[in-house]
Simulated scan of single mutants.
Amino acid sequence: MSDNSTDAGTEAGSPPFAEFAANLKPMNTPGEVAELSGIKIGTLARWRSMGVGPRFIKIGRTVHYPKEEIIRCLSENIYQSAGEAREGTSHDDPEDLRLRRRDQRRRVHRRMPRRTGPGAGTPTVNPSGRHDPGGPQDARP
């Protein structure tokens, strides 16, 4: 039995991406990349904003990924174990990326500041049964 793995990956450079590369066009939209690769469009957008993932070309508002960049990005991220993936990160400064992620989480989970002073207590219900936000009555127009 002969090994055809070298023949199958001639276009992509590695066998796992041979069929994938054959279906890619020279320039691909995020929707096309998502459909072929299974990577969500939102993930591609997040990668663009963070400066990771495949490099892209932007003309006006339209984003395109060159075929070679998609294959390069995917082939650079093949790992044997999770530990290898952590060590082999291709970011220039992994600490900076970690801090950006931490800051994003903080923005999402930030609470509104508590009101203090008069009228900051629990709302009351006035006799008519309508909601009254509380506070001094003379402050209203």
Rank of each mutant, 00 (worst) to 15 (best):
N4D: 01
N4H: 12
T6C: 00
G9M: 05
T10I: 15
E11R: 06
E11F: 01
G13S: 11
F17A: 12
E19G: 12
A21N: 12
A21V: 08
A22W: 06
A22Q: 11
N23E: 13
L24N: 04
L24Q: 00
K25Q: 13
K25S: 09
G31T: 01
E32Q: 13
E32R: 01
I39V: 05
I41R: 05
W47T: 03
W47D: 08
V52H: 01
G53M: 03
G53R: 02
I57R: 03
G60Q: 06
V63T: 10
K67F: 01
E68Y: 01
I71V: 13
I71T: 07
R72I: 01
R72C: 06
R72S: 03
N77M: 07
E84P: 05
G88A: 15
T89Y: 12
T89N: 15
S90I: 13
H91R: 07
H91V: 10
D92H: 11
P94T: 13
E95T: 09
D96R: 11
R98E: 15
R100A: 07
D103Y: 09
Q104F: 15
R105W: 12
R105N: 13
H109N: 15
H109M: 14
R110Q: 15
R115F: 12
G117C: 05
G117D: 03
G119D: 01
A120W: 05
G121T: 04
T122G: 11
T124F: 05
P127K: 09
S128I: 04
S128Y: 03
G129A: 13
H131E: 09
P133A: 04
P133Y: 06
P133K: 02
G135T: 01
G135S: 07
Q137R: 01
R140W: 04
